[in-house]
């Protein structure tokens, strides 16, 4: 329990740092942040609304620390300001519209990539020099060194454009209405999600697989593996309960960084596939100079990543009695 409490406090600190970064970044840039941030709102909103929007980001006529507290106050209330590119929809609403797409894509892809990576890594180490170790492992690690967006482009080009096996881009067939009760819509979501998902899984797989293989190799040299084999346990039990369960622990500890890469990769894949998630929205917000939306998305992504990390910590505690 103490471990989890400590981790939780740490994530609070990390969230706080992200929030603070969001506050100071515009103020560190050259030029007048207020001007840069709100010039496009001038004329579209009445001046009083612009004033209150400024206040949301702490741009009040006061010393910096008071600006900071004003900003925090609005944030606590869940007020992320108003999106420019989707004017006059609040940022929080825009985000909640795109968050589910990303969570679905990244969530399912991460679970797949992580579990397939762990399984293949285990097999590669268990059967050294055999098929998985000598063929799949090198391919996966080569793919991991490739730029995500390029693999996405090639997949889109070859599998969707040339072969026509998958739909070209977007989260669903745009002629359909967003309605989860409609079976045509659901199957179109699945159909459109397949290729982006596949791309994320393929690019994320290699790192986890290689990490697991190397951990397994180190664990397999331990005395308790030899003892387990000498005990006459089945190979399956030795491989899974004695070796893999110990070898998986470092992968969970390193989950934070790997997840960061997967999220980054997924955002890029979304952009290539015009998939209506956070990555696509983030890029649009940057290109449209929609600073409130940009900041809001960064915050949401960060909070989701922290939550996912905490989840990994909980699993770690379940698997390793030493952390309890």
């Amino acid at each position: 329990m103490r471990f989890l409490v400590r981790r939780f406090l740490f994530y609070l600190v990390a969230a706080y740092v992200a929030i603070t970064l969001n506050f100071f970044l515009p103020r560190l840039m050259v030029g007048d942040p207020v001007q840069v941030m709100f010039s496009k709102f001038q004329g579209r909103m009445d001046p009083r609304a612009v004033e209150s929007l400024k206040e949301t980001f702490g741009f009040v006529d006061a010393p910096v620390h008071e600006q900071y507290f004003t900003y925090l106050k609005h944030l606590v209330k869940g007020d992320l300001g108003i999106s420019l590119t989707n004017f006059p929809v609040p940022v929080s609403e825009v985000i909640s519209g795109s968050l589910e797409w990303t969570l679905r894509l990244v969530g399912i892809a991460t679970i797949f990539a992580f579990s397939i990576g762990m399984i293949l890594g285990t097999i590669a180490a268990w059967r050294r020099g055999k098929f998985v170790d000598t063929l799949i492992l090198p391919i996966a690690s080569i793919l991991a060194a490739f730029p995500y967006f390029w693999i996405a482009m090639l997949a889109l080009y070859y599998l969707a454009h040339i072969q026509g096996w998958f739909p070209i881009g977007h989260g669903y067939n745009l002629r359909l209405k967003e309605d989860w009760g409609d079976r045509a819509y659901v199957s179109s979501v699945i159909e459109h999600g397949m290729l982006p998902m596949l791309t994320v899984v393929i690019t994320a797989l290699g790192g986890w697989m290689l990490g697991m293989r190397n951990n397994m190799i180190n664990v397999l040299a331990e005395d308790y593996i030899t003892l387990a084999q000498a005990k006459g346990l089945s190979d399956r039990r030795v491989m899974l309960v004695y070796a893999a369960r110990n070898a998986i622990l470092p992968s969970l500890t390193g989950f934070a960084m790997s997840l960061g890469f997967v999220i980054g990769g997924a955002l890029i894949v979304e952009i290539v596939f015009a998939y209506p998630g956070m990555g696509f929205t983030l890029l649009n917000s940057v290109n449209g100079r929609d600073y409130p939306l940009m900041q809001g998305i960064f915050l949401m992504i960060t909070l989701s990543v922290l939550a996912a990390n905490f989840f990994a910590d909980v699993i770690y505690v379940l698997l390793d009695p030493r952390a309890r």
Binding site: V13, M29, V286, Y291, F298, V305
Partner: peptide, 19 residues
Amino acid sequence: NVFLVLPGLPLVIVISGWV
């Protein structure tokens, strides 16, 4: 550890948005 856990690419995208 904080910098490790903050998602790098989104942060860099946001910064290049400002720059």
